[in-house]
Amino acid sequence: MIRAIAIDDEPKAIQVIEHHASRIIDLDLISSFHNSEDALFFLKQNPVDLIFLDINMPHLSGLELLEKLQLKPHVIFTTAYTEFAIESYNYSAIDYLLKPFEFDRFQIAVNKVEQRINSKKQLHTFFFIKDGFKKIRIEYDAILFIKGSGNYLDITTKNRVFSPRMTFVEIIKKLPSSQFIRVHQSYLVNIANIDKIENNQVCMESNKIPISNNYKELFFKRLNF
């Protein structure tokens, strides 16, 4: 499932993207924004796989927004201006949709993103962390949850807990957003290893992870609750 957001200051443009996205099973458009500032705040807390991004917007353009992001998702530009096409590829854009665009053209662009994501998944099922003078390999599937505290993490796996010096932003870059989701300011959980959810807590083996109000709506939407 591709997790995406749309950013465009034109309400009709957002409606078109939402309509097209609703027709693609493997695309989850989790939110839409009419200004870049709100989207930027959201993205700093909620990594996504893809942004449908207008370029020419007031206050903060689409290109300026990308420059402010540490963790850059895949981007499909959606704009009425052809003159930005060449510049957009300096930002590693997957595709450039010129308004107005039909569903077939929209689907082609999304398919390109899916192919890019799948190719990366085939290459990586793990990452490395530093442990003193050693580097330890951790499989994605082995992780239950991750707790952040300042510049350190507690990575709880099925067998043990690792505590590397690493920030939340750094670990999010290493993890597939299709498998991991934030449920609290301090917690990421592996969706595949959730046993049950009760009393606003994620239960994973003997662990209970709190679900905060700030992340509850997105979390349950992701699980189709």
Rank of each mutant, 00 (worst) to 15 (best):
L63E: 07
I108P: 02
I117K: 01
P73A: 10
Y91K: 12
K72M: 09
K208L: 11
E67V: 01
T167P: 03
I51H: 00
H19I: 06
L218N: 14
E18P: 01
P73M: 08
I25K: 15
I117G: 00
L60N: 08
Y140L: 09
S32W: 02
Q185L: 09
V110C: 04
L63P: 05
K135W: 11
I30H: 06
K208T: 11
P100M: 12
L175Y: 06
F220D: 06
P73G: 08
E18V: 12
H74T: 00
T157Y: 09
I194F: 11
S31G: 11
I2A: 01
P164M: 09
L144Q: 11
I17M: 12
Y96N: 09
L144K: 09
A142Q: 13
T167Y: 00
I55Q: 04
R137T: 12
I25Y: 11
T167W: 01
F133A: 14
D154S: 15
F52W: 04
E170A: 14
K68A: 11
S149K: 12
I181Y: 08
V183P: 00
S36K: 03
F162P: 05
P210F: 07
Y187W: 07
I86G: 00
I155V: 13
E67P: 01
F219E: 03
F84E: 00
R182G: 03
K173D: 15
L53A: 04
A192D: 15
D141H: 14
I7S: 02
N90S: 12
S119R: 13
F180W: 05
Y89S: 04
V16Q: 07
I171Q: 01
N193F: 00
K12M: 14
F219M: 04
A39V: 07
V113E: 02
R222C: 10
T82Q: 14
N46P: 04
G148M: 07
P210A: 09
T156V: 15
I7G: 04
G150N: 07
K130T: 14
S212Q: 11
R160D: 15
N214Y: 09
K72C: 07
I171A: 03
E102G: 10
R23N: 07
R222S: 11
V161S: 11
R137W: 11
I86F: 13
K72E: 08
N35W: 03
D154W: 10
